[in-house]
Simulated scan of single mutants.
Amino acid sequence: MKRKSPMVIAIAAVSGGGKTTIASCLKGKLPNSKTIYFDDYDFDGPKDIIKWIDNGCNPDDWDLSPLIRDIKQLLSEPLDYIILDFPFAYLHSKTSSLIDFTVFIDTPLDIAMARRINRDFKSGSSEDIILDLDNYLARGRQGYITMLDSTKPNSDLIVDGTLPKFEVAGIITQKVMNIE
């Protein structure tokens, strides 16, 4: 039986955990799909991320209205899948009812940090990298830990983030195809 609306699949991970990479890989593996990337938006949310982390990282502190609008628009299109590069899994109250399946890419924090440095500091100075690492050690790491404690257990599938991207995408694709 054919689904009446697209299956919405959210891909979550810590920063540097592989959300964008895996969402892009899935776009090539899941037929008739479109991808929405969280980082393509400029959301209204906490101005002080460290304070937000200290206060428990509540996803509902973010106004995701532009993302919600785009998901709803794609739900009306003749698609089979909508792939979301999305850090909150089911935890944001206004998006949870729009998501059918969530995946958490469980990437060790050292690997995620190395990927983030490679991604974010290609043309940065060593001082910029050291400052970022100091911030991570002093306060930012708690945000990663909170995500592991909240988002990971609220996901339908947990995939080993140390696997090659084609394997991660293959595991997700196989699982999603078996749901239908």
Score class of each variant (00 low, 15 high):
D63S: 10
P31G: 11
C25L: 07
K29L: 04
P87N: 05
D70M: 07
K165I: 12
I111Q: 01
T162Y: 05
I105C: 06
R116D: 11
D134C: 14
I117T: 10
G124Y: 08
F104G: 02
N154T: 08
Y81T: 01
M7V: 11
I117G: 05
L64A: 08
L79W: 12
R3I: 12
F38I: 03
R3W: 14
R139D: 10
D106N: 09
L84K: 01
A12H: 00
D42H: 13
N32F: 07
I111L: 09
F104K: 00
D132L: 08
T102G: 07
P153M: 00
R119L: 02
L137G: 12
F121W: 13
N178S: 15
D60K: 02
K94I: 07
K72D: 12
G28T: 12
I130G: 10
L91H: 06
E167T: 13
I82G: 02
T107S: 04
L79T: 05
D134K: 13
F101L: 07
A13Q: 03
P164I: 04
S65G: 12
T162H: 06
I172Q: 01
V103S: 02
D128Y: 12
F101A: 05
D48F: 14
D110N: 15
I105N: 04
P66D: 04
D128E: 14
Y136T: 11
K29A: 00
Y90G: 02
Y144D: 09
H92F: 01
F86M: 07
A23W: 00
D132F: 14
V159N: 00
L75M: 14
D110T: 15
F101D: 03
L74S: 03
D40V: 08
M177S: 11
I172P: 00
D156V: 00
F121I: 08
I99R: 03
T173Q: 05
G124E: 09
A10E: 02
E127M: 11
K2F: 15
V168R: 01
D106H: 06
K2R: 15
R3V: 12
D110V: 15
M177C: 09
D132Y: 13
D48Q: 10
S126T: 15
G170Y: 04
L30G: 00
N55E: 15
Y136L: 14
W52M: 06
D128N: 11
G56E: 05
G17D: 05
R139K: 09
K72S: 12
E127L: 13
P66I: 07
C25E: 07
I105M: 02
S76M: 13
K152C: 04
I111M: 07
G143Y: 06
K4F: 14
I111T: 08
G45E: 03
I50G: 10
